[in-house]
Computed example of a mutant assay.
Amino acid sequence: MKVKNNIRVGISIGDINGIGGEIVLKTFEDSRMLEFCTPVIFASNKVIAFQKKHFGLEINYNGVQEASQVVDGKVNIVNISKNAPKIEFGKETPEAGKYALLSLKAAVEALKADEVDVLVTAPINKHNIQSEEFHFPGHTDYLAEELGGEALMFMVTEDLKVGLMTDHIAVKDVSENITRDLILKKTGKIHDSLVRDFRIRKPRIAVLGINPHSGDNGVIGKEDDTVLKPVIKELFEMGMMVFGPYSADSFFGSENYKKFDAILAAYHDQGLIPFKTLSFGKGVNYTAGLDRVRTSPDHGTAYEIAGKGTADFQSFKEAVFTALHIYRNREEYKKISANPLKKSSVNTK
């Protein structure tokens, strides 16, 4: 199949002892995916051949030594190592961590060199990947350092988008890390992403309270009154449609979230528990705030089902489509910004 001007999707294979290889190959076993993009998987022929045989998948691929040799219209495997690592499904091994990092580094370098257009990452194990080269709590912080910019963990579906004020830090450290500058920065990133990446001209953003019941006027905590409320007022006066703080316990159950284009949560679980409850299997982890597009599925390595052939690949597939959607929106945004008189189909809500 010859596809012209196809968006090239760089894919890091993640932890080979988890479900990464399975969900990647299941996604592209459907040859119709090649009508939308050209996948470039950073692994090795031996690893992919093993996974293909193990799961009984019917998928043809093109092995290349460098990303510059990729062929559009085919599933491409960029060989990142001559030595095939041992695959032990369901086990955390140092070898799998080293291979995951090798794949990620190669994919990021290809992204920097414009050999791929977007990056979709399969799940890593945040423990066995740690090394002198990778000393981060996850993909988000690593990519922020490698690609530059202020990264925002933005969990998205078509109808629900949740950003995090603080992400991979201990709960005991949350309140002291939430400052005026952080709120301004994270809210600004969400606003800019909604405009540029999702083409929403006047986005409405809800901010969740830090304390239970948003502090109950200082009875349960003062941070919502002394930190959040003044900054929300400041943002509103700047012209942003930012509202809150809202009590997190009732915000999602009451379906209040449907009135907004995005929600900014104070900390990791406050945002991700309701997000994954409402959209698990369809959600996508998007790293907003960078010059490059990176997405991933909304789940981890799932060691408990690795190798069994039962992994649901829907979230990874959604991550691919979301990356393509954002990439196209950004290209259109560039054209509109260069020619402001040009009419656009930006959502005006």
Rank of each mutant, 00 (worst) to 15 (best):
I210N: 01
I210T: 00
P212H: 09
P212Y: 10
H213R: 06
S214Q: 05
G215S: 07
G215I: 13
G215E: 04
G215F: 07
D216G: 04
D216M: 09
N217R: 14
G218C: 08
G221Q: 04
E223I: 09
T226G: 00
T226W: 00
V227G: 10
K229V: 14
K229C: 04
V231Q: 09
I232H: 09
L235R: 05
F236S: 15
F236D: 13
F236G: 14
F236Q: 14
F236A: 15
E237G: 01
M238S: 15
M238Y: 09
M240N: 07
M240S: 00
M241S: 14
V242H: 00
F243Y: 15
P245G: 07
P245F: 08
P245R: 04
Y246R: 08
S247T: 13
S247G: 15
A248D: 03
A248Q: 04
F251I: 02
F252D: 02
F252N: 02
F252M: 02
G253K: 06
S254G: 01
S254N: 13
E255N: 14
E255Q: 13
E255V: 02
N256I: 01
Y257N: 06
Y257S: 04
K258A: 13
K259R: 15
F260G: 05
F260T: 11
F260D: 01
I263V: 15
I263L: 08
I263F: 07
I263A: 09
L264K: 06
A265Q: 05
A265F: 05
Y267C: 11
H268M: 07
H268V: 10
D269V: 09
G271D: 06
L272A: 10
P274V: 06
F275R: 03
F275L: 10
K276I: 10
K276V: 11
T277I: 08
T277A: 13
S279Y: 03
S279F: 03
S279D: 02
G283I: 05
G283S: 13
G283R: 05
G283N: 12
Y286G: 08
Y286N: 11
A288S: 12
A288N: 02
G289N: 04
L290F: 03
L290D: 05
L290P: 11
L290N: 06
L290M: 11
D291K: 14
R292A: 12
V293W: 01
T295K: 01
T295M: 07
S296R: 11
P297E: 00
D298W: 02
D298C: 08
D298Y: 03
H299L: 07
T301D: 11
T301G: 09
Y303C: 06
Y303M: 09
E304P: 00
E304V: 10
I305L: 05
I305Q: 04
K308C: 02
